[in-house]
Amino acid sequence: MRPNRAPLLLDEVDRRLLNDFQRDFPLTERPYAAVAERLGVDEAEILRRLERLSSAGAVSRVGPVLRPQRVGASTLAAMAVPAERLAEVAELVNTFSEVNHNYEREHRFNLWFVLTAADEERLAEVIEEIEGRTGIEVLDLPMLAEFHIDLGFPLQWT
């Protein structure tokens, strides 16, 4: 990430490149040429624009978004932490290698984190240890079903 860089200028071709190809990217020998044809420019220009948008950080990649693979057990956990203890409790939670995302959210339940482990037993142990060391109950909210169908993210430029 480059801090304090100049604003990223996006013209109409950039905007369409970002918005219209988030899914169904051409599975053909020359996919960038196919994109170029739809946008009325040439293949080399599409490659240049993607290089620029990638190095500017606007594009993460051109590739697949994968359905999560089930390996072991995971859950979403939440705690209602008194404001003055939030930093301390967040730090303790972070010491567990089973924790991957850990965020403050604006609610009485103000600390939210994701736990992944080899099995349910280990998840339960981690939760119990966090509760024991903080004296604060942990809500255990495992995913029961996923309903979202990922069609990409429509960008609005106004």
């Binding site: 970002l18 988030q22 169904d24 993607l50 606007a58 993460s60 978004v65």
Partner: peptide, 12 residues
């Protein structure tokens, strides 16, 4: 593969 294409960074 849920989708295949340009993956944007929302925040950027």
């Amino acid at each position: 593969i849920k989708r295949f294409g340009v993956v944007v960074r929302h925040q950027e």
